[in-house]
């Protein structure tokens, strides 16, 4: 629109459809995936027991797909933490004329099972920026899409994470 009231700077709008950072790959460690399942209170045996997973039609035990996001959390020194505890942003920021960003939710497609020991590659791109008029003023709905692919080149999951900036 070229609207000078837009919350989306031109250089940010140009990022739509573009990758955010480099693709990253990690190996899924069984104990890390188990910690995640236990912390979520999820004791389904397909996450812990090969025989139970095979009985359910998998080739061996599987990893809760929600864990994928956290498998990519890089180790970081304490100096990177802000007063609120969160690490200072790293990588390419999505700059918007907004004061506050809220977590809006996620849409997942589960495409194939994930197994402990898999090496998963994550590729993230800015899927969309939508400027909307809300009851408490204008806001931007951003969707960041990450595709997870295993060592066989098979896409295992896609997640679209939504954030609201106002």
């Amino acid at each position: 629109m070229g609207d000078r009231m837009s919350l989306i700077p031109e250089e940010t709008r140009a990022l739509v459809g573009q990758p955010l950072g480099e693709a990253a790959a990690v190996e899924i460690h069984p104990a890390d995936a188990e910690r995640f399942a236990y912390a979520a209170g999820d004791t389904n045996p397909i996450y812990f027991d090969d025989a139970a997973a095979r009985a359910a039609g998998y080739r061996g035990r599987v990893v809760p797909p929600g864990f994928l996001v956290w498998a990519f959390e890089a180790p970081r020194p304490l100096e990177t933490l802000r007063k609120d505890g969160l690490p200072r942003a790293s990588g390419q920021p999505i700059r918007l004329h907004a004061k506050r960003v809220l977590y809006g939710g996620e849409d997942w497609d589960y495409l194939a099972p994930i197994h402990p020991g898999d090496t998963i590659t994550a590729e993230t791109r800015l899927a969309s920026l939508e400027e909307k008029a809300g009851s408490s003023g204008p806001f931007v709905l951003s969707t960041v899409e990450t595709t997870y692919t295993n060592q066989h080149g098979e896409a295992v999951a896609v997640v679209r994470a939504k954030r609201i900036a106002r």
């Binding site: 890390d32 910690r35 995640f36 236990y38 912390a39 979520a40 996001v69 956290w70 959390e73 933490l81 609120d84 505890g85 969160l86 690490p87």
Partner: peptide
């Protein structure tokens, strides 16, 4: 435990 399992230090 969930903060720990996801390496999330957010104080809230």
């Amino acid at each position: 435990q969930f903060s720990a399992a996801t390496f999330n230090p957010h104080r809230i």
